[in-house]
Design a binder for these strands. Structure first.
Lengths: 115, 115
DNA sequence: ACAACTTATCGTATCCATACGATGGGATGG
DNA sequence: CCATCCCATCGTATGGATACGATAAGTTGT
């Protein structure tokens, strides 16, 4: 009784998927740190965040599954970075969703009462 | 053992909260429909969506809690509309989050291997 | 080989999210 | 009033998310 996301248009489903990946402050913080440093070893993220190592690893996996970060093994460490094209695509997709919505608003206003 | 969102900066927590609200295709579809029509009665949304009435009501509540839509009772119906200022703020906040991240990327590139 | 270190994954506990049928309460119209 | 309609909420079921400790699996330096 779950996951009716296939009953919706695929673009909405995809956007929702990415939005969900952004839906936790830890994952936003990870993205910020990765962007600031360009590249980051897992342990650095763990020391930046108020979370246990296992939890950080889980959040990284979520971001990787959503396609927002990429990771590779560098000797004994794991090295992560933002997937720049994906993040640009995200920005574009959000714009494509929000802009028509915002454009429609001034015309169909409801500022004090809707009906 | 949950909800460590208070261990993060409030702006990240807030943005994550809104992103979470966008993290379901039904809620994205609701926002689109509301924006297109300007105003919408609950029943209209129910017939647009492949979901039961109770479920739609729940999604509307989530959007209202996140501050993205507003609703008022109009006689026997419930009338919803997008909260335009909130959506504009969301757009701005997303930009404030993504733009620095995207700006940092070209310099700190990792396009084929990170390390 | 071995000790030390780093990280992913497993196991587990708890809470949140999603979904629906059923119920209830308010409003309208006869 | 009373039947009807509309919707929020309750109850409930199930699956996902979040968190952590413990463990395993890989590397590196000795």
């Amino acid at each position: 009784m779950q996951a009716k996301t296939d009953l919706f248009p695929p673009d909405l489903a995809r956007l929702a998927e990415v939005a969900k990946a952004l839906g936790h402050p830890a994952r936003l913080a990870i993205l910020q740190t990765l962007a600031a440093r360009g590249t980051c070893v897992c342990g650095e993220l763990v020391s930046e965040l108020p979370l246990a190592q296992a939890t950080v690893s889980q959040h990284l996996k979520a971001l990787k599954t959503a396609g927002l970060v990429r990771g590779e093994v560098d000797g004994p460490r794991s090295c992560y970075c933002v997937d720049a094209p994906a993040l640009r695509a995200l920005s574009a997709d959000l714009g494509a969703f929000l802009d028509p919505v915002l454009d429609a608003l001034p015309a169909a206003n409801c500022d004090d009462d809707c009906c």
